[in-house]
Computed example of a mutant assay.
Amino acid sequence: MMLMDNKVATHHRFIKKFERDLKAYFDAGDDARFLSTFSKYTNLAEPSEHAEEMLYETLLRSKRPGELVDYSLEQMNNGDGNYETHMVYMLQALSDMGNYEEVLEFSGHLLEEPIPQSFRIDILSLRQNAANKLRGMLSDQEPVISKEEFDKFNLFQQLEFVEKITAAHDITYANLITEVFSEIKRNELKTAMLLYLRSVRSNGTLTFEKCGVKMTVQPAELGSLEEYFIVKDVLPKVLDEVEQFNPSFTEAAAELLMGHAIYMYPVQPDFTAEAAVKAYCERIEEMLGMPESYEADAKVKHWLGEIEREIAENSL
């Protein structure tokens, strides 16, 4: 037992010595010896968060971002170390490599998750920097589609085009979409444009009216469609209720609410999600010829009726 204790103590001393050496080489800017020692160190133990931060700084300093990306992805895939540290440095490395589209794609997904505020601030900063760099690279390029050509598209073509550039995080069209937004009458297309401008972190504000509500928004600060109250807070509860009284109608109910969400986003009515759940459930009961049973607020039912009327009058 004493022999085993001695081996453990010796192993621990070796690790501490490596960590001291790593700090000394890092402070001295001796990147080659740092990287060589780090490799030996990781053969003995899982690296500490501080050691990995020094590794990342060393790889960035020595212009080896590709190795940083490979290492961070491997650590994240294995579930080792601090995920936030790996991700922040990986995005920085991708940016240093000029892979700004990848930075926008990774960061866009991250910002849709409930991540800690300090992590969110780091990601927003890296995303904005990548967007600015990409905007600078593309500033001398003319968009392939001009305003005149966009105006000639029918509604379906316009929606398809906006969805395509949103998926590609194509910042080239930010000015075009901002310019034509005020001319757009269809709520579905306004929603698609807002989501596009959100995806490329568009600066500035937009003032418009939707569903009788006047608003001024900053697209970069909007939540995703998945975070919109109808999708996040109302839809799941309505589907749970419909599953109880008419399971065969759940798919139709989902299509109904998603259609309303796309039409209304990002309007926030002055009533609770629970009130909306009751109104939708009674509306579905009515559609199915069933007696109303949810005691929905008359004001909310009137709102729902107005939304349905607007959609019917402006149907695709």
Rank of each mutant, 00 (worst) to 15 (best):
M2D: 11
L3I: 08
N6L: 09
A9R: 04
H11M: 04
H12E: 11
F14T: 03
F14D: 08
K23Q: 10
F26C: 08
F26K: 05
D31V: 06
A45G: 00
E46L: 06
P47S: 07
L60T: 05
R64A: 07
L68C: 08
D70I: 02
L73P: 08
L73V: 09
Q75R: 14
D80G: 04
G81C: 04
Y83I: 09
Y89K: 00
L91E: 07
A93M: 10
N99A: 10
E101P: 03
V103F: 07
F106I: 14
G108Q: 00
L110T: 11
L111R: 12
E112D: 15
E112Q: 15
E113D: 13
I115M: 09
F119W: 10
R120G: 11
L124R: 06
L124Y: 08
N129G: 14
A130F: 03
K133R: 13
L134S: 14
R135Y: 10
G136K: 02
M137T: 08
M137D: 11
L138G: 10
S139K: 14
P143S: 10
P143V: 14
I145G: 06
S146R: 09
S146Y: 07
F150K: 02
D151Q: 09
N154Y: 00
L155R: 05
Q157M: 01
Q157V: 00
Q158I: 01
E163D: 14
I165F: 10
I165V: 15
A168N: 15
H169R: 06
D170Y: 09
N175E: 15
N175C: 08
I177Y: 03
T178G: 12
V180T: 11
K185P: 04
R186W: 06
T191R: 01
M193S: 11
L195M: 07
L195C: 01
Y196G: 02
S199I: 00
G204W: 00
G204T: 01
T205D: 11
T207G: 14
V217F: 01
G223Q: 03
E227Q: 12
I230Q: 09
I230E: 11
K232P: 03
L235K: 03
L235C: 04
V238E: 02
D240R: 03
V242L: 02
Q244D: 09
F245K: 04
N246G: 00
T250E: 06
Y263C: 05
Y265Q: 03
P269R: 11
P269H: 13
T272N: 10
C281M: 03
R283L: 06
E286I: 00
E295A: 15
K301A: 11
R309D: 14
E310R: 01
I311A: 03
E313T: 02
N314Q: 11
S315W: 05
S315V: 07
